[in-house]
Design a protein around this nucleic acid. Structure first.
Lengths: 134, 134
DNA sequence: CTTCCTGCAAAGAGTTTGCATCAAA
DNA sequence: TTTGATGCAAACTCTTTGCAGGAAG
């Protein structure tokens, strides 16, 4: 497997960076820095946690990665931008990505009301998942 | 001034709790625990930071307060639920609360597509504010 | 009075940083 | 060969916790 993402200019494409991006591409939901660490370890790749943090921060600044705090918890989670909107089950904690986020339709409305040029958004929705209802 | 909020049952209404709630009621935007601490101090009320954290956590659990991390920063912010949706200027960091969040209209859509019973949401929108555009 | 709450100080968790070494370009 | 990146360990910051004294009901 290899990354389909264009790597940001001005940075060296090290094997650590390639590996971190690949983990994020394969992740179904936002994951913590520690998750990245252990998933790499499973693949027999040992990268120090600080390198992971440093690169996640860089990737966030470059816009390739989104950082969020699921359910107000104290560990940051990271994901590619297409996984930044999600549902969380308040009962079991399951996370489900929202595809084609309906919020996109409101960019124009927000722009008119608040005068902001909208560049992005992130949405967290709480609820009870089908499994927990039954 | 006194709080208009009904205080959760089973807890003692101490002067510290009253004071913290009042700060949150008067806050325009989500603020940090430290912000609460210093605003209390300005009002000549000295409450320890740990008491503030303990009570903010309790208020979150009781649903009176919402915790969020603005712009992925590492300090938690707290606000009454009516201030949980906001715009952030990527240039100056200004926060503007979104009233009548348009996302409410999508509860039904999300329920049908994902099968969740939606109980709440929180939205963070990025953009450039009018002042920074000029 | 009883029980819960507070303040203080210390501990804990997650994240960041300094520095010597290593590897991408 | 040059300069940015990594790994390790130590440092830091925010947040949580234990405990003795204090106040709400």
């Amino acid at each position: 497997m290899s990354s389909k993402l264009k790597f940001p200019e001005g940075y060296r494409l090290t094997k650590q960076r390639k590996a971190i991006l690949e983990i994020l591409e394969n992740a179904e939901i936002p994951i913590t820095a520690e998750d990245v660490f252990f998933r790499l370890k499973e693949n027999k790749i040992n990268i120090s946690l600080s390198t992971i943090y440093r690169n996640l921060e860089m990737l966030c600044k470059e816009g390739l990665v989104i950082k969020s705090y699921v359910m107000g918890k104290d560990k940051a989670r990271f994901a590619l931008p297409d996984k930044k909107n999600y549902l969380i089950c308040e009962s079991c904690g399951k996370i489900v990505i929202i595809d084609n986020c309906p919020f996109d339709k409101f960019k124009e409305e927000l722009k008119q009301v608040y005068g902001f040029d909208i560049t992005g958004h992130s949405v967290e929705v709480y609820g009870i998942c089908p499994d927990c209802k039954s």
